[in-house]
């Protein structure tokens, strides 16, 4: 069986998730035994000439040109994997959607704003069908490999639909709330093995929210720990805005 041809693409992003893949270390050798990487801007200059089986896409869709490009990729690839928060939930680029489009364009590009085509930030699946998701900012390497193995075997990959707290408890971390620090673990979907909290940081919610985040209960939590609603809102804002359209210009 010939190895599947795999192409990596990027849209609006920091390319940090590509770096995570390039940084797999020893596992990279095993990965390369399974796939034939035909395009990967960050590590090689060869191009796929639009011949590939699996497209692995980083970054969010932020221009009309992006839409055309991702549609073309979708038409070529048999399997499309979105990886990294920008691609899977819009990520930090989604913060743009907090502002009217024209206003934010002017803020960024000033007098040259007219030269730039921009649309509200979208995750990849908001534009084309996505077969697999690897959430996270950046991706959690072991999960990427799990998803790749699923894709190569044609099996579905199930992103956990429970909160980061589950994994965090299993790792026996002291709860951030008990330290007096706000953390998005309770509403963020797991799958990262509570990577950040294991290393002393909080959960920033980069994997997106669980499907049923229990709004009422969240308010009780804020009340118990005396945390203002705005703090949590701001934190959620950082990664989880792409689902919303930009407000109208007033």
């Amino acid at each position: 069986m010939s190895k599947p041809r795999v192409a990596f693409f990027d849209f609006a992003c920091c390319e940090g998730c590509q770096l995570q893949v390039a940084n797999f270390g020893e596992a990279l050798l095993d990965v390369l035994k399974l796939i034939d990487v035909v395009e990967f801007r960050e590590v090689m200059s060869e191009k796929s000439n639009e011949k590939y089986d699996i497209a692995i896409v980083e970054g969010s869709i932020t221009t009309n040109h992006d839409i055309e490009r991702i549609k073309k990729i979708r038409n070529t690839a048999k399997v499309l994997i979105a990886y990294g928060s920008c691609a899977t939930i819009g990520g930090v680029n989604g913060m743009k959607n907090n502002f009217p489009l024209e206003k934010i364009k002017k803020y960024v590009y000033n007098k040259d704003a007219n030269y730039f085509d921009t649309i509200a930030t979208k995750a990849v699946h908001q534009v084309v069908k996505v077969d697999y998701f690897v959430h996270g900012c950046p991706i959690y390497q072991p999960e990427f490999i799990e998803v790749l193995k699923s894709a190569l075997r044609g099996l579905p990959y199930k992103v956990p639909d429970y909160s980061v707290c589950v994994e965090c408890k299993l790792n026996e971390n002291e709860c951030m709330y008990d330290k007096g620090i706000t953390c998005l673990g309770p509403i963020t979907r797991a799958g990262c093995n509570s990577w950040c909290i294991n290393n002393g940081n909080i959960c920033y919610g980069c994997r997106g929210m669980v499907t049923n985040p229990a709004k009422n209960a969240q308010m009780d939590v804020l009340d118990k720990y005396k945390i203002p609603l705005d703090w949590i809102k701001n934190k959620i804002n950082m990664y989880n805005k792409a689902g919303e359209q930009a407000p109208e210009e007033k």
């Binding site: 429970y162 909160s163 707290c165 408890k169 299993l170 309770p186 229990a214 209960a217 969240q218 009780d220």
Partner: peptide
């Protein structure tokens, strides 16, 4: 009131 975080069972 429950968050479904699973803390209680874990």
């Amino acid at each position: 009131r429950c968050l479904s975080c699973g803390n209680c069972t874990n």
